[in-house]
């Protein structure tokens, strides 16, 4: 399954939930937010929301700035 994660091509061998994808990127939970195809995915639903072929995922967190 091919995804775009934070602007980069991402190849997943199996079907992934949002939670499973986040776990490959960061150990943090607090301070992390996810949007799939431009829509915010509430953290409480991460484990229940499956990703689909071609999804564009943004996984964001706190950075210095502003």
């Amino acid at each position: 399954m091919r995804l775009t994660v934070n602007g980069r091509s991402f190849e997943a061998e199996t079907k992934l939930s949002v939670l499973a994808l986040v776990e490959t990127l960061t150990e943090a939970r607090r301070g992390v937010a996810v949007a799939v195809n431009g829509e915010v995915v509430p953290r409480s639903t991460w484990s229940a929301v499956p990703l689909a072929e071609g999804d564009a995922v943004e996984v964001l967190t706190a950075a210095q700035g502003g």
Binding site: T26, R30, G31, L60, T61, A63, Q64, G65
Partner: peptide
């Protein structure tokens, strides 16, 4: 105040430090 950026660009540590 903190900005929101992609996890790979932001790096860890800021939020734990603020907490």
């Amino acid at each position: 105040t903190v900005a929101l950026r992609r996890v790979d660009a932001a790096g860890p540590g800021l939020l734990p430090m603020l907490d």
